[in-house]
Amino acid sequence: MRKKHKITEKKEILDSKDLTDNMIRGGYLGVLALGDIGLTAWRNKRKERK
């Protein structure tokens, strides 16, 4: 059985306000590492901010 990924588990990453987080883990890179779901979520978030 394939595990179902829950984007909500990574909510803290998506809500991170510290975009210049120097830590390689987390920040918006963490979102990109999630693959297609992360990329879509990041694009949506960016649209909201605009």
Binding site: L19, T20, N22, G27, Y28, L29, L32, D36, L39
Partner: peptide, 20 residues
């Protein structure tokens, strides 16, 4: 198609994660 990320989409902050 939508799975591609364009280099111009990349924010400076994402790049800076590698070179803080």
């Amino acid at each position: 198609k939508e799975c591609r990320m364009h280099p111009n989409e990349m924010s400076l902050e994402q790049v800076l994660a590698f070179m803080p």
